[in-house]
């Protein structure tokens, strides 16, 4: 297996450890004065026995909402990750045997630089940012999640996509030994998702490695996952092992499973209902008396990120391209 760093990072761009440490102390100093926000402290109720490590050098990125984030417990015990089972608590309960380290990602297709990269190589030279995003599930519930990651566009451009790169296809790892959900063919494995090149390089789109300042727990898609906050949650493919740049749109897992219910775009849209339920409102997990009377709030077009992404879809009939 060939493991190398992208060839196109000039050594001048690679931060030396001393500069890096120095920058950290500067940022910490600024944070103390309140001039620069830093990542929130790791939650003190981290489960014992998990391998979550604090991520160093996380700065506070743009586009964050000031809505109060959901608890670490909500975010890590209520998940849709069918590779670990279809129940909401299955990923939390069944992902203990999953090994997110070591991890390599295959970059292939329409790019000048391709190959197999370890996660560190893939992300080296791009600063980790905390982005507090709204997460709207296609099942009409939502959370506020403080992700840690890097803009996908920053990563992609280093592979120098060719002019034929119109789409990016992602694939989740296939490990039925460690992912009990993959032993049954609930969806076609491995899970596949995709974005147009414009969507992939939009500054909102994140390649996330952490949540609440620590590395991603297995149930949240360790070690590397996609975050596309203006789309329904299922677009946020988890535990990515392959990134392929290509000319044609990939067939995506949920679209294959139920084409009338889940389209390629899957933009959050309160006006286009799922055939079996309304998308006009959403249940905000964690609110209202321990969630028992969780607030139902109106769903926003593009999940409230229209300012950043609406222009991507001008002229597109969103009712047909759901």
């Amino acid at each position: 297996m060939l493991i190398r760093k992208p060839a196109d990072i000039p050594t001048s761009e690679i931060t030396s450890e001393s500069t890096y440490l120095n920058r950290r102390s500067v940022i910490a100093g600024l944070a103390a004065t309140g001039l620069v926000g830093t990542s929130r402290a790791a939650p003190d109720h981290l489960e014992t026995g998990t391998a979550q490590k604090e991520l160093p050098g996380v700065t506070s990125g743009p586009f964050s909402t000031d809505e109060p984030p959901n608890s670490y417990e909500d975010i890590t015990t209520y998940n849709n990750y069918y590779e670990f089972g279809t129940g909401k608590d299955d990923p939390h309960r069944n992902s203990g045997a999953f090994r997110p380290e070591p991890w390599t990602v295959r970059v292939e297709g329409e790019a000048e630089v391709t190959g197999e990269f370890d996660v560190e190589g893939l992300l080296s030279g791009v600063g980790l940012e905390e982005r507090v995003y709204r997460m709207r599930c296609v099942e009409a519930w939502s959370m506020i999640i403080p992700w840690v990651g890097v803009p996908l566009g920053e990563v992609l451009k280093r592979f120098r996509p060719t002019s034929r790169a119109k789409y990016v296809a992602f694939q989740t790892v296939f490990r039925p030994d460690e992912m009990p959900g993959q032993r049954r063919r609930v969806l076609r494995w491995p899970y596949v998702e995709g974005l147009t090149m414009e969507e992939a390089t939009n500054p909102l789109t994140l390649l996330a490695v952490g949540v609440y300042g620590v590395t991603l727990p297995n149930q949240n898609g360790a070690p590397l996952r996609l975050i596309v906050p203006w789309k329904y949650g299922f677009k946020g493919i988890k535990s990515i092992v392959s990134i392929r740049l290509q000319e044609s749109p990939p067939s995506t897992s949920w679209n294959i499973a139920a084409p009338r219910e889940y389209g390629f775009y899957a933009n959050v849209n309160p006006e286009v209902d799922h055939p079996r339920w309304s998308q006009a409102t959403e249940r905000r997990i964690g609110s209202g008396f321990s969630g028992l009377f969780a607030r139902r709030i109106p769903t926003q077009m593009f999940n409230g990120y229209g300012e950043q992404v609406a222009q991507l879809y001008s002229g597109l009939d969103l009712r047909r391209n759901y």
Partner: peptide, 16 residues
Amino acid sequence: RIAGVLQPGLGANPAE
């Protein structure tokens, strides 16, 4: 379970 006396609790989305 709603009262929190018995485990497992109702999780993040108790209404569901």
